[in-house]
Amino acid sequence: MANILIFDSGMGGLSVYREVHRALPAHQYFYLFDNACFPYGELGEARLVERVLELLTVFVARHHIDIVIIACNTASTYVLPALREQLHIPVVGVVPAIKPAAEYCRSKGLKHIGLLATPGTVSRRYTAELVQRFAADMQISMLGTTELVRMAEDKLAGETVNISHLVRILTPWRGGDKPDALVLGCTHFPLLANELSQCLPKVHLIDSGEAIARRVSSLLLQPFTAKRITEQTQQLSGRVYCTELTAKAKAQSLAFAKEGFTLISEFCV
């Protein structure tokens, strides 16, 4: 049984956890979210790298972690090389699912891919390279926002999503030129999948969760099954940590409890 760490600035990593846990239920899961510096999309690159290295080198050693999943597109694009130099275990990052979106559109004879991500991910050269490599023949439109990150966090804290506000954010895609497939380029955004589908009906939503689950399966040398969780594996409980035990974090712990995690604890370096 491996100790698997899911890391994010907030709760977006739950969308990745669900896919990985569905495929690999018989493992011990840890979730660490850096709410003291949330959201990472608004943090400078140097500070972001320094912060993630500081947190994860200590956490991995303290909890004997076997594999780390950086469940944050922003952190993945900045931190992975430095983190892999520091840690001697596998580190898996997330990237926008441009390739699966292009494959889906080609299979359906469609052409328009939308990328919904944070401003940092939208503007990164790495994202442009993904488009050039996998979707150069497609129409690509991008929308960068951090507002949906906060919406997803508030939703998991029990607040109602403001659909009218979400509609305003998505205005560029609500006319006659809406995308055929929409890449959810932030791990928070799949947590709003129902609301996004309500605002953009008939648009196919694509995220990186299943691809990450396949990658983790291969690194653990285990088959990717995505089988239904058995009664035995349901008894395994994960552990969740935040970097600042605020009232909001305590409220969010209820969402973690629904996913099988134990009560939230504060992690200090």
Rank of each mutant, 00 (worst) to 15 (best):
H165M: 09
H188F: 08
C186F: 08
F189R: 06
I206T: 01
D154H: 14
H165E: 11
E210Q: 13
D154L: 15
K178I: 00
K202D: 13
L170R: 12
H204F: 04
F189W: 07
D207R: 07
K178D: 00
N194A: 15
A193K: 15
K202L: 05
P179M: 10
N194E: 15
L205W: 01
G158M: 11
P190E: 04
D154W: 10
Q198P: 03
G209K: 04
E210L: 13
P190S: 05
S197V: 02
L166Q: 09
I163G: 05
C186H: 06
I169G: 11
A157G: 14
G209L: 05
V203R: 01
A193Y: 13
P179S: 12
K178R: 07
T171F: 09
H188G: 05
L170Y: 14
V203Y: 00
V167R: 15
R168P: 04
A193H: 14
P190G: 05
L170G: 12
P190D: 04
T187R: 04
L192Y: 09
L196M: 07
E210V: 14
E195Y: 10
E210A: 13
V203M: 02
C199V: 15
V161Y: 05
L192E: 09
L196H: 01
G175F: 03
E195G: 10
R174L: 08
G175D: 06
G176Y: 02
L166C: 11
